[in-house]
């Protein structure tokens, strides 16, 4: 048991080290002198020297990496060139919005994708199934910005049920009621992902339903609902749960378009703006944190597999 945990964690750490080297090298991939690129043509020699010193560009490459990685481990991702504040602070400002948006979206995806997928599978081949599968296809292929704009048009501009843009922190005035700002963006972001989870749940249920052990379960004389919930769903979810993991992590980076449409102060928008401002430390920081997020979530999924599928321990 613990060997499995150690192996999985070890693999995650190795991946993180490899990724951090690539992210570190990123600043050296800039053509020409990164300092001039970051500061622009009008930089004074003093500014250039100061930045060069701050980035440690005069040290040997290996030392540069070790210093950078050591700082990152202590939570110091450097200083934003544009804001002149620590990168961690810049990212933290967007983090609340992004994490809440991803979480609310994930709730939609699970609440809509899984039950509707089960329904489509149980009613396989009927009009219900065909209708739902058609809707899922539509939801998966419509661009998020288009769905977002229509949601604003109908539910914000038209009916006035939800605000159309912005997001005040839940720690400020309004408290949890501020979550209503995230309803429309999370729905827009959930649509294509819920459609994928729906199709995955349906396909996985139908696969499992053909297994011999489902016939055994029916032969016992247990009720059909119990066959579906305990035997089919339990095994079908094995495939779906691993999709939850990477869907959640992808939501953080996928949210860029949605954050723009709904003018949300999230990490996605920070990245886009930082790219335009050539604020390399911020870009590096966001990529590093996103990588960590992917690794942690996948690790959680891998470890939870041990509880869902007893066969995993042997492998």
């Amino acid at each position: 048991m613990s060997r499995y945990v150690i192996r999985r964690t070890g693999a995650a750490i190795m991946t993180l080290i490899a990724a951090s080297i690539v992210i570190f090298a990123f600043i050296h991939l800039i053509p020409g002198d990164p300092v001039y690129v970051m500061l622009g043509d009008g930089a004074t020699p003093e500014q250039v020297a100061a930045l060069r010193d701050r980035l440690g560009l005069d040290e040997p490459l290996v030392m540069q990496y070790l210093i950078w990685a050591g700082n990152a481990l202590r939570g110091d991702l450097g200083v934003s060139i544009f804001f002149e504040t620590p990168v961690t602070q810049v990212i933290a400002e967007g983090a609340e919005t992004s994490i809440l948006l991803a979480s609310v979206t994930m709730v939609w995806i699970i609440l809509i994708g899984v039950p509707v997928g089960i329904l489509a599978a149980i009613r396989q081949g009927t009009l219900i199934d065909q209708g739902l599968s058609g809707l899922a296809m539509l939801a998966a292929s419509l661009p998020t910005f288009w769905v977002g704009l229509y949601l604003i048009l109908i539910f914000a501009a038209g009916l006035g049920w939800f605000p159309s843009s912005g997001y005040p922190s839940i720690f400020e005035e309004g408290g949890l009621v501020n979550l209503r700002y995230l309803v429309l963006p999370s729905l827009a972001l959930a649509a294509p992902n819920a459609a994928l989870i729906l199709r995955l749940t349906r396909a996985s249920m139908l696969d499992v339903a053909r297994e011999d052990y489902i016939r055994t379960a029916r032969a016992k004389g247990i009720r059909p609902t119990r066959v579906v919930l305990r035997h089919i769903l339990r095994n079908a979810l094995l495939a779906v749960v691993s999709a939850f993991g990477f869907t959640f992590a992808a939501l953080i980076s996928e949210a860029v378009v949605t954050e723009t449409v709904f003018a949300l102060p999230g990490i996605g928008r920070t990245v886009v703006q930082s790219i335009l401002r050539r604020d390399y430390p911020v870009i590096q920081g966001v990529i590093l944190i996103t990588v960590c997020l992917y690794l942690v979530i996948n690790l959680i999924v891998d470890l939870s597999y041990r509880y869902l599928d007893p066969r995993v321990e042997l492998e």
């Binding site: 297994e211 011999d212 052990y213 055994t216 029916r218 004389g221 305990r230 035997h231 094995l238």
Partner: peptide, 29 residues
């Protein structure tokens, strides 16, 4: 009558074993 209907009506039982014992048991239970 399907097996669960036979149980509900409390009539006699027919049970069955299959060709593939490797795949006839639920792997996660």
């Amino acid at each position: 009558l399907q097996p669960h209907q036979r149980v509900a009506r409390n009539c006699g039982k027919v049970a069955m074993i299959f060709q593939e014992p490797m795949t006839s048991l639920n792997p996660v239970l």
